[in-house]
Design a protein around this nucleic acid. Structure first.
Length: 422
DNA sequence: TCTGGGGTCCTAGGACCC
DNA sequence: TCTGGGGTCCTAGGACCC
């Protein structure tokens, strides 16, 4: 064995980010709410303890909030992204390779420590360093494969030390025997009952199941998962972030919207945001999908989407907005109260590897378009994302969602920087 | 009253071709 | 009554993740 896999997982990440700047709330149950303050997306340790479930709609836990005086935050993604980057930069120092798996998780491979060096000590050092430098508590699971590292991290969360290694076969098997299949990374709510119907109840059962049979009854991912449980690496560490296949921007509205003009404003705004992201990854879109929906919990319900191919690939926001609005016009039906619109860019390419039209030598936007996009980007970068916008995004924006409880942008906006009074 | 947002991958089946 | 076989490509839908 030459390398081991570590899974580093930030504990209650969004809640931990909020607590960083509000040490006065330590020990109290803290929750972070989804974009529209609709449901719970993160819970502090204390919030978990009083029984607030992940994903719970806010209105179903009113009684808990009142009884236990729960502290609520709207989600503050600029802050979480910034803290995440800092955590990842610290982790990088310890790794021979790192895959940033999500905003709060990373897989690391490290050379197998020399005889006598305890891998757990190294993990503890990593944990201490992140805690000291960034202030975010993490759990660390260690094993031979990504899937087993995930299993180890479940154990790590139960430990006071926050770290756990699964290296010896005996120990691995006894842990897998106690693990329900639904807890395995890659096995969800649908696959678990199906596996159970074939007599596969625990992770150890899955590991021991014949792979040909698994392939026949399920798919290749389930086979790979079973192999990983058997210490055979089947999911590679992906160090280089993949170029995206699609980019989406959509939001629920603060209150239902009926007028087309307001939907147009919202869609323009989301398209601009998605275009900004497209610009940042250095890509162009070959097609866009526009979708809209009324509240799925109330009648009359209407949802629709439309695909609009683009004659020429582009990242020029006005073109994307114009096409998007055309699509919206097609699928809009008067008389409904809409809850959400959104846009997805598909058929993405890198601007550097562009399929050229017959007479192009190199992909580039017309000079003036390019200058405009660059300028808007620079202004946003320097003065904040609200410093400039397209007129079609509207001024009053009554469709904007609720974010009543958002904390300041402590680390990404000068006006919001933390002040300390002595 | 109130229920998020953004992704990826796999497979089956249809369309189409020779 | 008879009604091929094999291959590719695309898409919708299902499943998963955080």
């Amino acid at each position: 064995m030459s390398e081991v896999v570590l899974l580093i997982d930030c504990n209650s990440f969004y809640a931990s980010c909020e607590l960083l700047f509000r040490p006065d709330l330590k020990g109290r149950p803290v929750i972070v709410l989804s974009n529209n303050d609709g449901c719970v997306v993160a819970r502090s340790k204390e919030a978990k303890k009083i029984g607030i479930p992940m994903g719970a709609p806010l209105f179903t836990i009113e009684h808990l909030i009142k009884t236990f005086d729960v502290v609520q935050f709207s989600s503050n993604y600029p802050l979480y992204n910034d803290i995440s980057n800092r955590v990842m930069n610290t982790l990088r120092r310890f790794a021979s390779a790192i895959e940033i798996y999500s905003i709060d998780e990373a897989f690391l491979t490290i050379p197998c420590p020399k005889e006598g060096v305890d891998i757990l000590d190294l993990a503890k050092t990593i944990r201490q360093t992140v805690l000291k430098e960034i202030g975010i508590p993490v759990s660390i699971g260690i094993s031979h494969t990504k899937t087993l590292a995930k299993v180890a991290s479940i154990e790590a969360k139960k430990n006071a030390t926050g770290v756990h290694a699964l290296i010896e076969k005996k120990e691995i098997d006894s842990t897998l025997q106690k693990l329900d299949v639904v807890e395995i990374w890659g096995i969800g709510q649908r696959l678990a009952p199906k596996l159970q119907s074939y007599g596969v109840f625990t992770a150890l059962d899955l590991k021991k199941t014949d792979k040909t049979r698994l392939k026949k009854l399920f798919n290749i991912v389930v086979v790979k998962t079973a192999l990983e449980l058997d210490s055979i690496p089947s999911f590679e560490l992906e160090e280089i972030p993949k170029f995206p296949k699609s980019i989406t921007c959509s939001r629920s509205f603060g209150k239902p919207i009926e007028e087309l003009s307001l939907l147009q404003e919202a869609l323009s705004s989301y398209t601009a945001q998605a275009a900004e992201k497209l610009y940042r990854v250095g890509g162009t879109a070959g097609g866009i999908i526009v979708f809209l929906t009324t509240n799925r919990f109330s009648e009359p319900f209407y949802a629709n989407s439309i695909y609009i191919p683009l004659m020429e690939k582009t990242f020029y926001p006005p073109t994307l907005m114009e096409k998007g609005l055309e699509g919206l016009f097609e699928i809009y039906r008067a008389g409904y109260f809409y809850k959400k619109v959104g846009v997805t860019f598909v058929d993405l390419s890198r601007t550097t590897q562009h399929q050229l039209t017959l007479f192009q030598e190199q992909f580039q936007l017309p000079k003036k378009q390019k200058e405009l996009v660059d300028a808007v980007h620079r202004i946003k970068k320097r003065f904040g994302i609200n410093a400039i916008q397209y007129a079609s995004e509207g001024i009053r924006k009554p469709w904007k969602n609720k974010k009543e409880l958002r904390s300041p942008l402590y680390t990404t906006l000068w006006e919001d920087i933390l002040t300390i009074q002595i």
